[in-house]
Computed example of a mutant assay.
Amino acid sequence: MKICIISFDFWNYDEHIAAALRSKGVEAYHINIGAYKHKDFSAKITNTFSKVFLKKNIKNEKRQNFILEQLEALGHQDQILIINPELIEEKFHLEIKKFTSRYIAYLYDSLARCPAESILHLFDDIYSFDAQDVAQYGFTKINNYNYLEKVEIEKNPEFDLVYLASYDERLKMLYKITDQLEKMGMTYRYIIVGKKTWKKNLLKLVSFTGKDKSKKYQSRRVNQKNIPQFYTQGKVLLDLVRENQSGLSFRIFEAMALGKKIISDNQSLKNYDFYNPENILILKDDASNLNKAFFETPYEPLPEEIYRKYTLETWVETVFELK
């Protein structure tokens, strides 16, 4: 069997899907359109000029042609999975679909955040992690996955709480939590990634807090291979959901593998079979229920059958109908 995954893999999670398929004897490929780069500096300048003055992103067009070039080399695929298909124009979807017998999509953003309604009719099956979209559009519900092997629980983590995320509206909630932690005398460490982080770094310099190691703002993403190591530094992980999103982030599943408790503002967590108030603290809007006692009790391991339900192995068996 030949399967191809096509995605804009910013955080390098999707390559794990291809690796899991290969472990099952599947001939699997991953086309990461986010890895496409301009051939030279002049091409970059031309694209910048086009975006500013012609309102046309040449790079996006070239990325999509790159997909077709890769598929020409790979040949016909039994299945092609597109992750967040709104990043590809309909005319390219129609060409990609010619290379497969089963064309499927996985939405790990809500349609409210990433509209894709105009192209959904192109797919044989659509999977979504967002419960509201599943209810409204009849998608097949599936969560993100636990891609990590179980690891031994870190006995003496350096910080009480750690957080890694993009620079976005979630910072407002993060600062509420920070205030609460400081009042309780608890330690924390967070890394915020994004192009606009220069603003925060400038403020830190102006306010003479540039040496504050508890907060780090950077434009370059963290290598996905280093994310688990970062999380081992914390006793508890923090998970904050984006606006118009109810699906489960990878943070939930990374916490499972690492044996870490988690604090989240995702109210839907209480509806899942892995929910245990000893392991998961669901925050109120003002974070007023954040308490020191939650940090002082140990993590309670999940039953094996529940743990396996959320592994990547189960995920690929379900999405690609391998059972």
Score class of each variant (00 low, 15 high):
Gln136His: 13
Tyr190Met: 08
Arg170Thr: 02
Arg221Asn: 14
Gln132Met: 10
Asn156Trp: 01
Val193Phe: 01
Lys155Ser: 11
Val193Tyr: 02
Asp125Asn: 09
Leu181Lys: 04
Lys216Met: 11
Gly138Arg: 09
Tyr167Arg: 13
Phe208Ala: 08
Tyr147Ala: 15
Lys196Pro: 00
Val222Trp: 03
Met186Val: 07
Ile177Cys: 09
Tyr147Arg: 14
Tyr188Trp: 05
Leu174Asp: 00
Asn156Ala: 13
Tyr137Ile: 05
Ser166Leu: 08
Arg220Gly: 04
Ala135Tyr: 06
Gly194Met: 02
Lys216His: 06
Lys155Asp: 07
Leu205Ile: 12
Gly210Ile: 09
Tyr145Ser: 13
Lys141Leu: 10
Ile153Pro: 01
Ser207Gln: 07
Asn143Asp: 15
Ser128Ile: 08
Tyr147Met: 14
Tyr145Ala: 15
Lys204Asn: 14
Ser128Glu: 02
Asn146Gln: 08
Tyr217Ser: 01
Lys195Ser: 09
Lys183Leu: 11
Asp212Trp: 02
Val162Thr: 14
Glu158Pro: 07
Lys195Met: 04
Lys183Pro: 06
Asn223Gln: 10
Leu181Tyr: 01
Gly210Asp: 03
Phe208Leu: 13
Leu203Arg: 14
Lys196Thr: 01
Thr140Val: 08
Tyr145Pro: 11
Glu169Ser: 14
Leu171Pro: 00
Ile177Asn: 01
Lys199Ile: 01
Tyr188Gln: 11
Phe129Glu: 14
Asn146Lys: 05
Glu152Gln: 13
Lys225Leu: 11
Thr187Ser: 15
Ile142Phe: 00
Val151Ser: 15
Leu174Asn: 12
Tyr147Lys: 15
Lys211Met: 10
Met173Asn: 13
Ser207Val: 03
Trp198Ala: 01
Leu161Arg: 02
Lys195Glu: 11
Val206Cys: 06
Tyr190Lys: 08
Asn146Glu: 10
Thr197Leu: 00
Leu171Cys: 03
Thr209Arg: 15
Gln229Tyr: 12
Gln136Pro: 03
Arg220Gln: 14
Met173His: 07
Tyr127Trp: 11
Met186Thr: 02
Phe139His: 14
Gln218Gly: 02
Asn144Pro: 05
Phe129Ile: 15
Asp160Arg: 04
Leu122Asp: 00
Tyr188Val: 12
Asp125Tyr: 01
Leu202Ser: 00
Lys211Thr: 10
Ser166Val: 04
Phe159Gln: 03
Thr140Ala: 09
Tyr137Met: 07
Lys172Tyr: 08
Lys216Ile: 12
